[in-house]
Design a binder for these strands. Structure first.
Lengths: 241, 241
DNA sequence: CCTCTTCTCCGTACGGCGTACTGCATGCCG
DNA sequence: CGGCATGCAGTACGCCGTACGGAGAAGAGG
């Protein structure tokens, strides 16, 4: 599975040269996904984007699923790792910041419902480093795993709701007018103040407004990490033996 | 958009009777998704499951997307609401419990990348009630919205990682052997103790084991709600006056 | 009752998808 | 130079969602 991620095959010597590289194919696929959206991504369109025949892609990649895993691993590869000299909390916050930036750069990652992580080297490197940072707390390892998962899924959730609503319209620009028109029509027609009083109050107070800002995830992460800090037992000898 | 969810059309009086009901169609679709998995779901298979022609479904439902939204709203309709006499924390925990149960019952919801909520009545009722429960804390409404989002995405994240790994194999039972074989082969071939020391330690300590148990989300939710409790300013007059 | 109108069901068909197969051109190795 | 491993791509197969139109059912109006 995804040998390509770990073992890029040695260049063949016998036949004709490859016209492209694997990197070019992955890049083209990401560009198509960014331009047309993840569910308009098809082998034919990637090939067309590269100016080759559809079936030629299969000399670079075993199939669409594998190409997709390569795309995901590529996206994770852009995540920088925190400075290990920082305190654990700053390192974890840095990881969250990078994850957020990744979803911002590659919104198709959210639609991609990575129901199983691709186990690529970039993914594993980033996760290992997050685990390492959380482990600096000294908490039991089972808690470390859970906390790291919380951080990731918290940022994912924030990114998902950010992409979900306003931003999808403004980013892709066009053709979302119809979507908004129908949605506005929905609110006008079916929304009932009596049935959804709390949502109405939140709406009127502007509580749903901050869609694509860092505040969306910083609040939750702060809450989470405050809780983690309280889990850490005070060190028995704060200074000196 | 999804008029069907809010305005089930009045039964027609002119033509022949419908052979089925909308509910039957949605039920059949959910059964197909549960049996074959969400990406094997197709109009033709749902129709076959019902013993009708493929195109007959389109007299009940405008298209596959709408059918899918009906499926999601149906799943949310199974969520019970907490007793309003309980303290806010117990109500929120009840909501999380119900969300977890929903993902357990309908794993296809996780694969379903609900990038936009369907805005069905059941979805909105459940969300409204969660907002209401969180609002009992008396916190600012913008925080209420964020906290409710955190609770949902936390349970979603836990459910996703639970479904992702072991459980997908054991639940669907068959044909996942190949998946596991290849994954085991991966660990044997590429996993490096030196490269991933923290993950190795967590693995050896059993920190990755608790996949499909309530502990997966209870820990994170506890952390979260502890943090929320600390946000609540102590009531100025705990008793008296 | 007959006819008109409306509706359900569904066979056919179209364009798109992932990809198996195959023929062909390419260019290294013996 | 001959042989052969290899990259490229045309064709085709079996899926998919669904537009279209025809056949038959059944209430509405005379």
């Amino acid at each position: 599975m995804i040998e390509l991620l770990w073992n890029p095959p040695p260049p063949k010597t016998r036949g004709p040269k490859q016209r492209l590289t694997l990197d070019q194919v992955v890049t083209a696929a990401i560009e198509v996904a960014a331009t047309l959206g993840i569910d308009e991504l098809s082998m034919r369109k990637v090939a067309q984007h590269l100016g080759v025949g559809a079936m030629s892609l299969y000399t670079y990649v075993p199939g669409k699923d594998e190409l997709f895993e390569l795309m995901i691993d590529r996206a994770w590869g852009d995540r920088r790792l925190p400075d290990r000299a920082l305190p654990w909390r700053a390192q974890v916050e840095f990881h969250a910041q990078e994850a957020w930036r990744m979803y911002e750069t590659h919104p198709w990652l959210i639609r991609s419902n990575l129901w199983r992580m691709p186990l690529g080297p970039n993914v594993l490197d980033a996760q290992e480093d997050l685990y390492r940072a959380v482990a600096l707390t000294g908490l039991p390892l089972s808690d470390v795993a859970r906390i790291a998962g919380l951080v990731e899924s918290q940022v994912f959730g924030a990114a998902r709701s950010a992409v979900t609503d306003t931003s999808v319209a403004s980013h892709t620009g066009v053709s979302q007018d119809a979507y908004w028109e129908s949605r506005a029509g929905f609110w006008r027609t079916y929304y009932s103040f009596e049935r959804f009083p709390t949502m109405t109050r939140i709406w009127e107070s502007g509580g749903f407004d901050e869609e694509y800002s860092d505040a969306a995830w910083e609040f939750g992460l702060g809450l989470l990490l405050d809780g983690v800090e309280r889990l850490i037992p005070p060190s028995p000898h704060p200074a000196g033996t």
